[in-house]
Simulated scan of single mutants.
Amino acid sequence: MAETGILDFLSALLCVQTCLQCIMGRLDGKVIVLSAAAQGIGRAAAIAFAKEGAHVTATDINSEKLKELDSYPSIKTKVVDVTKRDQVEALAKELDHVDVLFNVAGFVHHGTILDCDEKDWDFTMSVNVRSMYLMIKAFLPKMLARKTGNIINMASVASSIKGVPQRCVYSTSKAAVIGLTKSVAADFIEQGIRCNCICPGTVDTPSLRDRIQARPDPEQALKDFLARQKTGRMCTAEEVAHLCVYLASDESAYVTGTEHIIDGGWRL
């Protein structure tokens, strides 16, 4: 009888543990800051983080779209231009600490190097690389003070991973993001900081749809995008958000300095 009682107790304890795991989110209590949260991958990630129990500060320059996230109690929205140092530093000062910094802001330029003017080059590098430099430099000291921190950067398969036609400056900037990620990971690994990047393929976002509509023949442009997807479809922002949650969680505690590819095999 005693043995049966112990087994029953252990079984009940296991049930309680399982129930608690169901109730608790994978990101419970974590403070997360991210950029470009008004739409696309940033928006999907902000919502996914919030649903997993995180306290999210979602930033963007699009104030109207950003307001749509105000309906989520654990998401605080703030209009911030992450290419402006004063705005980034002001944001960092507002927060006591940050567990996860997710740099999403980006711009896709279409064309070869011959189609890329200096202003196009400078703008792309400012949005895609300099913004991450500013954000990391502003928030990393807070992480170092607590001897723990998690940085996630948005890169792309169109980078040092794969040469893609008509993506010269974009691919160059995303290759720089991969380099930045590895450098930060290597420099601060012994201080409790980890840094990874996400490398999507073609993701069906409002930004992509806008770029397709801007082409001379939008219908053909869409067909061209789909034709290069070996899975027969594009990735969704929500699918990328699942990877974001993993990298933001303690489940990935032993992962740093790595490119995480989610492209449906496009690079193959």
Rank of each mutant, 00 (worst) to 15 (best):
L66V: 06
V82G: 01
L247V: 10
G42H: 08
T148S: 15
L247M: 10
N150K: 05
D60Y: 03
K119N: 13
F9M: 12
Q220V: 11
C168W: 01
Q17A: 15
S173E: 06
R130Y: 01
R215E: 15
M135L: 15
R194I: 10
S207P: 03
I193F: 05
S159P: 01
C116F: 01
R85C: 11
T205W: 02
R267C: 12
R194N: 13
I41V: 15
S11W: 08
F225E: 15
V16K: 12
G29M: 07
V177Q: 03
A186K: 11
T256D: 12
T181I: 12
D99A: 07
K51L: 10
A50K: 00
D122Q: 14
R267M: 14
S160P: 00
A45R: 03
V33K: 04
T231G: 10
G5C: 01
V98A: 09
S131H: 06
A227Y: 09
S156M: 02
C199K: 04
V108S: 08
K137M: 08
V245Y: 08
L226A: 06
A90I: 04
V164K: 08
T236N: 02
D8F: 11
S63A: 14
D217Y: 08
D96A: 10
I61K: 05
S183A: 15
A90G: 12
V80H: 01
T236H: 06
E89H: 04
E89S: 08
A155H: 03
R211N: 12
A186H: 11
C116M: 12
R85I: 13
W121D: 05
A241M: 06
C197L: 03
I47F: 06
D117M: 02
I23N: 04
S249N: 06
H55K: 11
D8W: 07
S131Y: 03
E94A: 13
F225Q: 13
C197F: 00
H55R: 10
N103T: 10
D122S: 13
R211S: 11
Q229F: 05
V79C: 14
S156V: 01
T57H: 01
T172M: 13
K76W: 01
G29S: 04
Q166H: 05
V245N: 05
A186R: 12
L114N: 13
A50I: 08
N62V: 06
S35V: 06
N150G: 04
L268E: 11
P218L: 08
D250C: 02
E68G: 11
Q21I: 12
M135D: 05
S249G: 08
D28W: 04
W266S: 11
R209N: 11
T57P: 01
E259L: 01
R228I: 15
V82K: 08
I113V: 15
D99Y: 04
L34I: 00
F9R: 12
Q220I: 07
E251Y: 00
V169N: 00
L180I: 03
K84T: 07
S160G: 12
M132H: 12
F102A: 12
C22E: 11
F49H: 09
V184I: 15
P73Y: 07
C19Y: 13
C235S: 14
L247P: 07
D204N: 14
P165R: 04
A2W: 09
T181A: 10
